[in-house]
Amino acid sequence: MDLAGKVAVVTGGASGIGLAAAKAYLAKGAKVVIADFNEEGGKQAAESLKNDGDILFIKVDVASEDSVKSMIDFAIEQFGTIDLLVSNAGIGALTETHELSYEDYHKVIAVNQDSIFFGAKHAIRHMMNNGGGAIINTSSILGSVGEGAAFAYNASKGAVNLMTKSLALQYAKHNIRVNAVAPGYVESGMVSREALGEEFYGQLVSKHPIGRIGKADEIAHAIIFLSENDFTTGTTILVDGGYTAQ
């Protein structure tokens, strides 16, 4: 797919991987809607990128079907169509399973897993009428391997991997490709030496054979590949510095 002139919606687009993906799409000539629950951060991100191309912001609660539908409708109203959806927004919850409340568990499932269904449901309806499109879901290394105290997160990201395969098989005949990208730990405000302390940060680094934490633009590069390559569907690309090869 030639991305020039295409319309991409990126959830969790105010920061991190989502913001890096938005920048990468703009660099390819696409029009971008960044959607995020963080209204202030999202507006600032869109404002900072307005000179790089056509970009708009809308607030979204990805755990709400009505909110996700409004997001898709907004993109179509503003740009006329939707060609690409990056379902990237997510949350984590690290706690002992026997201490994990149903409410906390369900919140992780709602944000990380239900959002994939809501986004696909409402984007695919339009993509089918427009001759196709591509959906990229953000999974995680923890969708492939277990980690203690990450029960809800493991469950949600494992589901993302199989939902991606199922959607890809169901809609291939409509020229709609569905893939996922599964990052290792990525540098961010929450994953940094300053936030975690030198010891814990060093432990995370040691889990990646390549010898460092990932960068958001490295994940965005994989998202662009999955957007452009018309023969790739139903796969989850691990961008993890060798984490899951061990």
Score class of each variant (00 low, 15 high):
Phe151Glu: 13
Ala168Phe: 02
Gly12Glu: 07
Glu147Phe: 09
Leu85Asn: 06
Ala93Arg: 12
Asn175Met: 07
Phe79Tyr: 15
Met1Ile: 14
Arg177Phe: 08
Ser67Trp: 01
Lys6Ile: 04
Thr138Asp: 02
Ile109Phe: 01
Ile55Leu: 07
Phe200Met: 14
Tyr201Ser: 02
Ala159Thr: 10
Leu196Val: 12
Val186Met: 12
Val160Glu: 00
Leu26Ser: 04
Lys215Met: 08
Ile124Thr: 05
Ile176Thr: 04
Ala24Phe: 01
Asn130Ser: 15
Met163Lys: 07
Ser144Tyr: 09
Lys173Val: 11
Ser139Asn: 13
Ser188Asn: 10
Thr235Pro: 02
Ala22Gln: 01
Glu65Phe: 09
Val181Ile: 10
Asp2Thr: 15
Ser87Ala: 15
Arg193Cys: 00
Ile82Cys: 13
Gly42Arg: 03
Ala14Thr: 06
Val239Phe: 02
Asp2Met: 13
Ile141Leu: 09
Phe57Ala: 10
Lys31Gly: 04
Phe37Trp: 12
Ala22Thr: 02
Ala93His: 14
Lys173Arg: 15
Leu167Pro: 07
Tyr185Glu: 14
Ile34Phe: 07
Ser48Phe: 03
Ser166Thr: 13
Asp2Pro: 09
Ala168Val: 03
Asn130Ala: 13
Ala182Tyr: 11
Val205Asp: 09
Ala89Met: 12
Lys157Leu: 03
Asp52Cys: 10
Ala89Gly: 11
Ile91Gln: 13
Glu99Tyr: 09
Val68Asp: 00
Ile135Pro: 05
Gly92Gln: 13
Ile17Val: 13
Asn154Pro: 08
Ala35Val: 03
Ala4Trp: 11
Ser144Thr: 11
His208Val: 09
Ala4Asn: 14
Ile237Thr: 12
Thr233Lys: 01
Asp36Thr: 10
Ala155Lys: 08
Leu204Glu: 06
Ile224Lys: 02
Ile223Thr: 05
Ala222Tyr: 08
Met71Tyr: 05
Lys107Ser: 08
Asp230Cys: 02
Gly148Cys: 09
Gly18Val: 05
Glu40Met: 14
Ile219Gly: 01
Val191Ser: 01
Val86Tyr: 13
Val178Leu: 00
Met71His: 10
Asp52Ser: 15
Glu40Asp: 15
Ser101Ile: 03
Leu94Pro: 08
Ile91Phe: 07
Glu187Ile: 12
Ala150Ile: 11
Gly133Leu: 05
Ile213His: 01
Ser64Val: 11
Ser166Tyr: 03
Phe151Leu: 15
Val111Tyr: 00
Lys207Phe: 06
Glu228Phe: 00
Asn137Gln: 07
Ile55Thr: 03
Phe37Thr: 13
Phe79Thr: 03
Gly119Phe: 02
Gln113Met: 14
Met127Asp: 00
Ser139Leu: 07
Tyr25Glu: 04
Ser15Asn: 14
Ile72His: 08
Gln203Ile: 07
Thr236Met: 03
Ala123Ile: 06
Lys165Ser: 09
Val239Gln: 01
Gly189Val: 10
Ala63Asn: 04
Ala168Asp: 01
Lys6Tyr: 07
Gly148Ala: 15
His126Gln: 14
His208Asp: 09
Phe74Ser: 04
Lys207Glu: 12
Leu142Tyr: 14
Ala152His: 03
Asn154Glu: 06
Val10Thr: 02
Lys43Phe: 07
Ala182Lys: 11
Ser192Ala: 07
Lys43Glu: 11
Ile55Phe: 05
Pro183Met: 04
Ile224Leu: 08
Val160Trp: 01
Gln78Leu: 05
